[in-house]
Simulated scan of single mutants.
Amino acid sequence: MAYIYDAVRTPRGKGKPQGALASMKPDELVASLARSISERGAGPLAPDALMLGAVGQVGAQGGNIALVSKFRAELPDSTAAVSINNFCVSGLTAMGQAHAMVESGQADSVLAGGVEMMSRVPFMADKADFYSDATLPTRSRYLLVALAADRLAEDQNIPREALDEAALRSQQRSAAAESTPLVASRININGLDHEECVRVGTSETLAAMEPAFGAAAEHYRDILGREIDHRHTIAHAPPISDGAGLALIGAEGAIDAAPRARIVACAEVGGDPAESLTASFAAMRKVLERSGLSLSDMDRVEFMEAFAVTIVQFMRDYDVSLDRVNVSGGHMAKGHPLGASGAILLSTLLDTLDAAEGRYGLVVAAGASGAGSAMIVERLG
């Protein structure tokens, strides 16, 4: 069995040069989290590996960011360092890989998580050929996620009003969570002690906002295949942000501390690239099947708000109580530091489970072009 001994996260800073974390390096964020895990009770860290998700692996996040973070955190030379890019599910994928290493006996303990500093490495900064490669089959070509979200909202007949409602709920819950046990595992760093991106609007201000992504459609007209009704505004999209999350995952007794949770099951799924964000649902179904559990068994769920359409579709199509889902707010309010998001969500899940004294928790993440990841944990305590 694999256990989570601790999981911590940074607040999310604005992914702009003036953001509260922008003066730091991504490896400094990871090292700060590693030190926090050590100081919170795990003691000196000597993991067999550091598995780190990051999407933009260039510039400040290039040169094997996991290796650079290993050096910055002063981990032993014997610690292997592996950087992972699985788009926006990278952080959760890294944790799933850590689980597999421990379960298979390849490692006694692994530090795993993700980091993304979009103030230093902007979206699509790697300039991959994939983003513009017209030789691929049309359904497999890269589609800007915002446009995929707009198309999905139209295909699923999800109205603008439902998107506004979800965004407002995310904003309100995020603001209400501050200074509560729901942020117990979030460290204060570089003077930032709150989620910097959160702004709380009203139903009226959200309704007055214009759809934001129609202009980009011209560049993807042949991939979209039709004119679409653009419904997502900036409020329905997660803010560009900086952040990191990290967990210490190990075998029973590998760490001289009591574990917080047991990893019950993990799932990595590839989905229809033309539907982009829907692989999260497939990953969720697979992890529930593997675990022998159902959504009704989950005391808390962290479902990535990869644009408003996904959380609205989840709440509409699945039998789950709103009181158990994203109870401390979500990405639409707090921000989405790409490769870090899955790891941040897992840390958040453990805090919400602790606060509720719940047993089972589920985290679900989605990425562009059909990337999906999910994990179920059992709280111990």
Rank of each mutant, 00 (worst) to 15 (best):
I4Y: 01
V8E: 06
R9G: 07
K14W: 06
G19K: 10
A20P: 05
L21Q: 03
S23E: 14
I37T: 05
E39K: 13
R40C: 02
P44K: 13
L45P: 10
P47V: 14
M51Q: 05
A54S: 15
G56N: 14
Q57N: 11
Q57I: 10
G63A: 10
V68H: 02
F71T: 01
F71I: 11
R72Q: 15
A73W: 07
D77Y: 12
S78F: 05
T79P: 06
A81L: 06
S83T: 14
N85Q: 13
F87Y: 13
C88W: 07
T93Q: 08
M95R: 01
A98T: 03
S104W: 10
V110R: 14
L111Y: 09
G114P: 07
R120H: 12
R120F: 00
V121F: 00
V121L: 03
P122E: 10
P122Q: 11
F123H: 10
A125I: 09
D129M: 06
T135W: 08
L136A: 03
A146V: 08
L147P: 05
A148Q: 08
Q156I: 01
Q156A: 15
I158A: 05
R173S: 09
S174V: 04
E178A: 15
R186S: 05
I187H: 02
N188H: 05
I189N: 01
H194R: 14
C197P: 08
G201A: 10
S203T: 14
L206H: 02
A207K: 13
A208E: 13
E210R: 15
A215H: 15
E218Y: 13
E218T: 14
H219R: 15
Y220K: 04
G225L: 14
I228N: 06
H232N: 09
I234V: 15
A235D: 09
A235G: 11
H236E: 09
I240W: 00
G243S: 05
L246M: 10
L246F: 05
A254V: 04
E268K: 02
V269Q: 15
G271K: 04
P273I: 01
L277T: 04
T278H: 11
R285A: 15
V287W: 04
D299L: 01
F303H: 12
E305N: 09
F307S: 10
A308I: 08
T310N: 13
I311V: 13
Q313A: 09
F314N: 08
D317P: 09
L322R: 12
D323A: 12
R324S: 09
N326A: 00
V327Y: 00
G329L: 07
H336C: 11
L338M: 15
G339V: 03
A340E: 08
G342C: 04
G342M: 03
T352R: 13
L353D: 01
D354V: 05
A356D: 07
G358Q: 02
R359W: 05
V363T: 15
A366T: 11
A368E: 12
A371S: 12
S373I: 01
A374S: 11
E378L: 03
